[in-house]
Design a protein around this nucleic acid. Sequence first.
RNA 1: GCCGAUGUAGCACAGUGGUAGUGCAGCCGAUUCGUAAUCGGCAGGUCACGAGUUCAAAUCUCGUCAUCGGCUCCA
Length: 599
Amino acid sequence: MEVAVKPGDLLRQADPERLHRIRHTASHVMAMAVQTLFKDAKVTIGPATEMGFYYDFDRGEPFTPQDLKKIEKEMRRIIKANLPVVRQEFDRATIRAEIEKLKEPYKLEILAAIPEGEVITRYTLGDPNGDKPFWWDLCAGPHLATTGEIHPEAFALESVAGAYWRGDEKNAMLQRIYGTAWETPEQLQAYQQQIEEAKRRDHRKLGKELQLFSIQEDAGGGLVFWHPRGGTMRRLIEDYWKDMHVAAGYELVNTPHVANLDLWKISGHNDFYRESMFDTMEVEEQQYQLKPMNCPFHVLMFKDGLHSYRELPMRWAELGTVYRYERSGTLHGLMRVRGFTQDDAHIFCTEDQIASEIFGVLNLAETVLTTFGFADYEVNLSTRPEKYVGADAIWDKATQALRQALDQKGWVYKVDEGGGAFYGPKIDIKIEDAIGRRWQCSTIQLDFNLPERFDLHYVSEDGARVRPIMIHRALFGSIERFFGILIENYAGDFPLWLAPAQVRLIPVTDAQRDFAEGVAKQMKTAGLRAEVDRSGDRMQKQIRKAELEKIPVMAVVGAKEVESESLSLRTRKTGDLGVVLVTVAIEKMQAAVRNRDWL
RNA sequence: GCCGAUGUAGCACAGUGGUAGUGCAGCCGAUUCGUAAUCGGCAGGUCACGAGUUCAAAUCUCGUCAUCGGCUCCA
C-alpha cells in the first residue's frame, strides 16, 4: 500500500535555515504565551529540533492537553499581533540585572554558563517602549524578523512530557512542551501524515495483528514471545544469517546463558557494566551471572588451547541471547527489551589482518542488509576517546586500518573524533527504512581490553607469544530489534521469501476443499508455506481475511480450476494474475522466493 | 528509575457511585456462493492486581504491575 502523496518529498522542499528560524521563534512565541497564561511558569531553554521545537518550563503543575489548546490560541494571537523580533547585545552585568528583575533563576544559570568573551544577546518579542505586549529571552538566535512570519496554520503543539533540567536526572524535573512548525500548512499536513504513516507501521500494533510476537505482563516487561508466525520468520532470518556467515568463513559456536561471576570480574563487566546487568544468583555458594554479553565466552574458548598464527583469523559467530537490566520506563516493543539475541561474532586476528577483516565485515554487512531491503547507510567511524586502554601505536594502526577498509569499500563516512569506546575504535552503520527513518544496527568494534584482561595470545612465526586483535561485530545488532525494524520497513507486507504464510488457498465452495488440500500438500512439498481456508466462508470473505492478514498470494479454487488442475492467482502486490496451472503457480512462487522478490 | 497519561471479553471500543454493553473474532446451525465482510443463534469479563472509603466501587483514594508519550540510556 503506497501513500498517494509522498510526505517526505514535500518536507524535503523546505528550506532548513528558514525552518530553523521559524521553529526557534515559535518556541519563543510559545514561551511568551505560556508566561502570559501561567504567571508561575519559569523559563529555561527552548531550542528548535529536527522536526519542530520545544520549551522547558519550571512549574509546580504539569500542563494538561486543555492547557495546550489555550497556549496554541494565545500563540495565534501573538502571531497575528505581528510583534517585531529584535536582537540586542548586552554586557554581562546589565543583562544579569535584567534577569534578576524577572526572577528567572534558570536564565541566570544559563548566563553563568556563557563563556567570557562571547557576545551576550537577547531577543525581544514586541516593543519595549510601546504599549504592545513585550517579552524577551536570553538567546543566541537566529530568529525571524517578526512573529507574523510564522504561518498561524503551519504550527501545532504536540505533547507535554517531563524532562530534567540539563538532561540530568539529579536535577529538577521540568515540564516540556513539544511543538512542530513549518513554512506552510501543506508542509505541516505532510508532517502529520508521516506521523500517521509511522503509526500505521508500528511494529507493536502489526506484531499483534499479524500474530508475530507478544510481550506479556504475566512474564514481565521487555521479554519477548515469538509466536509461530514470528518464529517462522525468525527461523528464516537466522537460517539466512547462518548460511551467509558460513559462506564468509565464519564458524558457528554456542555458549551458555549464565556463568560464574568471577568471569565477569575478570572481563571487567562487573565493574563498568554492573548497572545494566541482572542481579546475580547463587548456586552452591557460588555467584552466577546471567550474561549481558557474549564476548567473554568467546574469549574463554579462544583461551582453551594454544593457537598458531597459522590459524588466524578465527571468526566465531553466535546468535547469542543476552539479558540486560533496562529501566522499566525505557522498554519499547521489540526495540528496547530486557532479553535479546545478538547476531554476534568475534574475530581474532593479527594486527596486519585488521584492514582486510574489517573490509570483509563491511562486505558481509552490505550483502546481508541489502537482502532485507536496506541499501542506504550512514556510516560513522569513532576514534580514540580521552580515557582509553592500549598503546597509542596500536590505536593509530587500528584506526588507520578501519579507514583503509572504509576507503576500499568506497563508502562515505563521518568521523566522530574521540567517540570510540575506551577499549577500541569502532564503525557504526545506520540503515534507512522505507519512510526515511534511520536505525543503528551494525557495529564493528575493535577491542584492546579483553585480550589483555584474559591474557590471550597466539604463537607467532618466530615462536613468540603475541597478543591477538579482537574484533567484535554484529550486523543486525539484535534479532528482536531488527525484526521490529523489518516489520515497520515493510509495514507488515513481507516479501514472499519472508512471509510467514506465503499462499492461502481459497475454495469457492466446500466441493473444492479436497482439491485445495491436495494442492497445499503439493506446495508444501515444493517448500512453500501454504494454508487452506477451512472456514466455509464465502469467497469474498476469505479474500478479505487473507488481505487483512497480509498474505502475499491468494489462490482461488472453483469448479473450473479443479477441472483444469489450475489456480486463480491474486496477489497483494499486483492483484488478479489470472488462472494458471498448479505446476506453473508453484514454479512462479519458487522463483520469487529464490529472487527474494514479490510475486 | 523520574514526569504525565492509560489499563473493561481474543481484538477495537462504550459505560463517572446502584447487579457490565456494542462490533469484529470464536462456537453451533442454515446458506455452497467467483476476487475485500451471507443470515440466525450460542457462549465469553472476580472491569490489570492488592488494599481502603461507602449501605453499595469498573467508576472515589492509596499501593503494585504493565503499557503509552517523553527524560536518561542504548542492541
